[in-house]
Design a binder for these strands. Structure first.
Lengths: 158, 158
DNA sequence: GGAAACTATTGCACTCATGCAATACTGAAG
DNA sequence: CTTCAGTATTGCATGAGTGCAATAGTTTCC
């Protein structure tokens, strides 16, 4: 290997570092949530936030869990008044899940917190460097492709 | 607000997008781990990987859980042969925890996977843009500061 | 030497997530 | 109308994480 002269290698290192920082920020945005919801529950909220009307079976699908698990997770979220459960009119077998105002607020709060943190970092960057960062990120984002709602993936078991 | 003309705003948007992509990659690097360890357990492994000799009480501290929880988490990790437990010579009250070869391999595998993914993204970027990305990331990383082992934070309760 | 402090562990109790099998409705197709 | 398929839920069981309190072994400090 030709030492650190390779730009690709150097870029990887820089990206690993940046990645660490960004993941840490994302994780920090989630901190404090433990009081209200568990991580699996938060995942469910995120799914519900993205697709406003969802049946339990769809939620189960999205979260890759069994329907019974989804039902019981909803039990807990409904008890916390973060989710509403209404019977479908069109098909009376079905149940429709919707975020409550509180539920929506909770998800919004997390993303707002994350945005705020990112803004703070950017504020520390000189204006002309910001321009270059924007350009570089545009290129990076194009290369990385669309990320299918990252926070979702934050699941693991999580 | 002066529309999208503000570079800071535009930078935030780009950064949010990039952040999503990077979190998704980090999460994907963790995928498949569920077979072997839970997320709390993985967090413990990461802590042990960073500080090679650790007492249960220190681990508990790092993970922000009670000592009894740490003990029992170690029970499971020892059972899986990912962690070794030895009695301290200097102070026979204490127990010293160490990653086993398997444990170290598991953590390495995750970071390697992440690096590989990041490299793939970079490979899609034209060489001269890479140079600019490196420079931009250097500035960004300076502004973001050191992230204290991100994956750790990936915990939430998790 | 004995009290006080520290370490690890275990007993007990609880919540959550999880899946598999019923069960109960409802709708659709014949 | 009867059977079949789709949907949600509940019963049952398990494993994990969690903390508090009690226990046991060690040091340390008078």
């Amino acid at each position: 290997m030709s030492a650190a002269a390779e730009p690709a290698e150097s870029a990887t290192e820089s990206l690993v570092t940046a990645s660490r920082a960004l993941v840490a920020i994302a994780a920090r945005s989630l901190a404090g949530l433990e009081e209200q919801v568990t991580l699996p529950q938060y995942r469910a909220l995120v799914v519900l936030a993205s697709r406003s009307q969802l049946r339990p079976v769809d939620l189960a699908d999205s979260l890759d869990v069994s329907p019974s698990t989804a039902t019981r997770m909803c039990d807990r979220l409904v008890a916390k008044e973060l989710v509403e459960r209404v019977h479908s009119d069109s098909d009376r077998r079905e149940v429709v899940l919707r975020l409550s105002a509180d539920g929506r607020a909770l998800v919004s709060e997390v993303t707002a917190r994350r945005r705020r943190e990112l803004r703070k970092v950017i504020a520390r960057i000189p204006a002309e460097d910001q321009e270059r960062l924007i350009e570089a990120l545009r290129v990076f984002n194009a290369a990385a492709g669309e990320a299918p709602e990252s926070v979702l993936a934050l699941g693991m078991s999580l």
